[in-house]
Structure formats: C-alpha cells, structure tokens
Design a protein around this nucleic acid. Structure first.
Lengths: 198, 198
DNA sequence: ATCGCTTGTTTAGTAACCTAAACAGTAGTT
DNA sequence: AACTACTGTTTAGGTTACTAAACAAGCGAT
C-alpha cells in the first residue's frame, strides 16, 4: 500500500534538486575565472555571466551560506571542496551530454551545447557515469560505433506526429505520472516487465 | 565578429525555453484527466498535481493566455491543438528518456523516472527523435543490444573522482562555456563538421 | 584633502512559482 | 428561504532570480 509511492508525483522534486541551474553556473564561473585569471571577484563573475553586480552579489552570498564558496586571504572568491565537487559534477555532465548529443546522436553542435547546458545540473552522478560508460563502449568498439553512426546518419525526421511514435507504440512502459487516479486495486501489475535485460 | 555568438553564454536561455516544467505538467494533467474522467476542472487539476486550487487557477489562467488551454461547452478545461502538441511532446520525451535511462543505461527505475521527469521539457523534438532512433537501432539489432546490455551490466562505479574522467581525458571537446574571455581571434573553427547526413 | 573611479552591497520593483486564507458564486437539501 | 457544500478567484505573503539605481567604502591622483 505504501509501495505506490514509487509511482508518486515526482514533478515537484525538481525544486528539491541539489543544485540550481543558476547556482551551478556561478560555481563554474568562479572556477573558470580562477583558472584563467588566478582570482575571482564579484564583479568578474557578474561580467562573465552577464548579470549585474547586484545579482551576483546576492547569489554568491547564498553560495557562501551553503558553504560552496568562501574567500581566500586576499578576499577573493574560492570554491570550497564541496563547491568544487558540485562544479565538477555539472561540468562533467555538460561534457558528457554535449558529446553524446553531438557525437552519438548527430545533433548539430549548437543544439547539443544548448540542450546539454539546460540539463547538466539535473543528471545524477550515477546516470552520468553510465552514459560515459555507454559512450566508451560504443566508441571503443569500432564496428558498433560505425553501425550506430551509419544508422544515425540515415536518420530522417520521420515520426512526424508526436502523437504516434514507433518506439512508444507499445504502451507498456509509460508509467502513470501522477500516483493512482481512480482506485486501481492491484499495484503489482506495474512491474509486469520481467522481459528485459536477462 | 558576430559569429562568436555560437559560443556565447547559453546559460540564460533556459528561461527562454518554450515551456516551463510546471506548465508542462499542468497541460499533461488536463490531458490525463480528460482521458480518465472525460472532463477536467481547476479543482481536479489542483488535486492531481497536489497544489492548491488558487495556484492551479492562476497557472491555468496563464495557459489560457498562451492559448494552450480553453474551455468546452460545459466550461470544462480542454487543450487547444497547440496545447495538445506541447503536452504530447513532453510526454513523449518523458517516455523516451525514462526508457533510455532504464533500459539502455540500466539505471534503477526510480532514478530513471525522476530524472526523465526533470529533463522532459528541455529536450527538443529533434534530439528526442534521434534518441528514439538510436534506441530503435540498438533494440532491433540483437547482437548490438546484447553487447551493450552486457557492457552496461558490467558497469562498475569507477571513475570515482569527478575530477578525472576517462572519457574527458582528452580535453578536445569542452568548448568555452562563456563566450570569449581573453580575445581568441578566429571563430570560424566552430563549424568544422560538415560530415553528417548527406 | 578632495575628486573620480572601481567595488561590493542594498533597496525597490518584476516575474514565475508556491501556500494559506478570505471571498463570491452555484447548487443541492431541508 | 436558509443552510451547507463545493467550485473558482482573489489577496497577502514567501521563494528564487533578475534589473536598475542608490549607496558606502576603498584607492589612486592631483
């Protein structure tokens, strides 16, 4: 009876995400600036991110509260260990996703970068690692990579109507998004899919 | 000189996304309710999404302004053609992503659903189609699918430190995130990739 | 010592979300 | 008709994140 929490409305969890899109970019900006200039000040971050100093000031104050950012002896901004870790995670997710979109899926570079940028902070370390693993596998197995590239090169829009998609023709997977609407008795039927991965 | 916009700060484009995470779920909720109950009212949507009627009322008013939602003869909520299209797109992205995470990457169902839910509204139709295409290819080529599944089953955390990742060891790809810091002259090199889809 | 510039913070106002609570209808019941 | 219940909107208040503009502090130059 409590197992249906598995299917529970997940849609509001976005707000409970570890890190915000904006926070991630403030962290990465500080990191970038320290790497490139050796130091990072509020003004530099603001300029890099193209926001006002006021906005940067307030956002960075939040990051200090969260202990992702501190100041060094010279009062310049630095990432704490945890801050560095968050920044690296997002940075890595960005690279993984953009490479996946561009090199595996064959999406244009612009779109690949734009979409990777939107999703980078939403992917878990676990999923990111698995995606890297998949890409490593594909890229290190010449014939597989070639086949997939060939397949992707033959990609044609197709599937024009979003309403009907070849992959989703079997409606086996789409799990109910919002818990149980009407009382749908046996909730064990949800796991009737022992046919994969054996 | 204006071509460097290619590498320009993309990080604020998230706000310019076609649809908001919350808007997407309001649309899908209306769609779900009409399918399940035959009608959708503000109260039903609020209950389904677990928000107050006040919040639902205001959000739905916005959707009406955008002409994604109207009312039928009985004053019940309905999606317009455009609204339906947006809802279908997000719904499809959700299915695609969750299946990809779960079936291809081997992520647990919970995580797969949660992350798909966060990203569903951020993936373009184009990328979504290509991902479907890739999955179709993988799943329809027994040996490839088997190999990949085997590889993914052998997945071990590895790559423990986020700082150093096997895939990203060659720093060839990571494009500068925030425009040009120092003046980096020639920007035409960005489009050196005319090798697809001919 | 005062001008002028940069730096960082603060304040007021905007926008998209949410809650809680008051409010105005509409509709069924006694 | 009056009581109650449900529906939908509105109001006030909170959050995150932005802009614009005022402000305080520091610092170099004359």
């Amino acid at each position: 009876m409590s197992e249906k929490a598995t299917e529970r409305a997940c849609w509001r969890d976005v707000q409970k995400n570890d890190i915000t899109h904006s926070a991630a970019h403030y962290l990465m900006a500080i990191d970038t600036l320290r790497e490139q200039n050796g130091y990072a000040r509020v003004t530099d971050v603001a300029e890099l991110l193209e926001v006002t100093r006021g906005a940067a000031s307030i956002s960075i104050a939040q990051l200090k509260k969260r202990e992702w950012v501190t100041e060094d002896k010279h009062r310049f901004l630095v990432l704490t260990e945890e801050g560095k870790h968050m920044a690296m995670l997002v940075e890595q997710n960005f690279r993984t996703l953009s490479r996946f979109f561009e090199e595996v899926l064959g999406v244009s570079r612009e779109v690949a970068l734009a979409e990777a940028c939107k999703m980078e902070h939403l992917m878990s370390l676990e999923t990111g690692k698995r995606l890297v693993w998949l890409m490593k596998y594909i890229l290190s197995h010449g014939h597989t990579a070639a086949e997939i590239h060939q397949a992707m090169n033959c990609f044609k829009p197709g599937c024009e109507s979003v309403e009907h998609c070849p992959l989703c023709e079997d409606d086996s997977v789409p799990p109910s998004r919002y818990g149980v609407l009407a009382d749908s008795g046996n909730s064990e039927s949800g796991m009737a899919q022992g046919d994969r991965c054996e």
